[in-house]
Design a binder for these strands. Sequence first.
DNA 1: GATGCGCTTTAAATGC
DNA 2: GCATTTAAAGCGCATC
Lengths: 87, 87, 87, 87
Amino acid sequence: MTTGEISDTSQTVAAGELRAFIERIERLHEERKTIAEDISEIFSEAKGRGFDTKAMKSCIKLRAMDSTQRQEEESILELYKAALGIV
Amino acid sequence: MTTGEISDTSQTVAAGELRAFIERIERLHEERKTIAEDISEIFSEAKGRGFDTKAMKSCIKLRAMDSTQRQEEESILELYKAALGIV
Amino acid sequence: MTTGEISDTSQTVAAGELRAFIERIERLHEERKTIAEDISEIFSEAKGRGFDTKAMKSCIKLRAMDSTQRQEEESILELYKAALGIV
Amino acid sequence: MTTGEISDTSQTVAAGELRAFIERIERLHEERKTIAEDISEIFSEAKGRGFDTKAMKSCIKLRAMDSTQRQEEESILELYKAALGIV
DNA sequence: GATGCGCTTTAAATGC
DNA sequence: GCATTTAAAGCGCATC
């Protein structure tokens, strides 16, 4: 048995494991892509029903935010707006 | 029936529809987030098994490119060469 | 004179012109990149002085917006927030 | 001296500093916008001269890639090949 | 006027 | 924890 053979064997095992990991991830990537497409479809549907998708996205973002952090950000923004004279 | 009532009614209807759209999207966001976490877990697992996650990501990207993007880049390159008069 | 020669000639002229256009654009790209870096530097400096860059960006965006459109967007957002019960 | 006064003072100072930062950024935004318009003009001019602007943009992108990114992609490919045991 | 595409910007993950 | 790098979102344009 040569050093090369040993090396080859261990590398083959690693390659199989690597391939398995990568294929699992690729499968999840596919699922994620499908979901993204579903989301786009819903926005299109909402748009077709006359809704403003931009405002919808803002609402979704607001709902997703932790209320504590959201108020914190809002207060610092108000502070800055005041400092800049933005009404 | 006042104008206000009409306005209120239509807004109520819209509100229900809007809420439905948004909740559908939020549900998909949740699913997408779950998938993202699953992907992270797999990378962690692979890392624990001694694999280099950065290289893995490069591999995944290359495998994704091969199918479509690589060909696309090829065609653009041909266009580019033609534009520069490289036969 | 063959068709090939005619074609070659016109293509040579076009190539020179094309190259000139492209180099002008590339020069402007360089300038634009420099400016982008300058902007980043200022944000870094502001961050080092304790300012919240995210809020700064919001303020800049608000100042850039047409007040009419801004109020319009704000009103539709408020409408949606009310419909969704976002306080 | 009250806490309120201290707070007000620091805020006033911060306001001036904040305003200065933001105005510097806005000035750079203006410059950047001017450049963007210059670029658009060149594309319009090229279009008027019969060139295909989409292909031009592809060319510019490719030329920008050649210097660094292309080599980077090459090196990633080598890494990829090594990971798969392709000698 | 709507829709797809590309770029810019923004949020997030990762490594130092 | 910060700073870089990478994915995602938002935006504008250019087209049909």
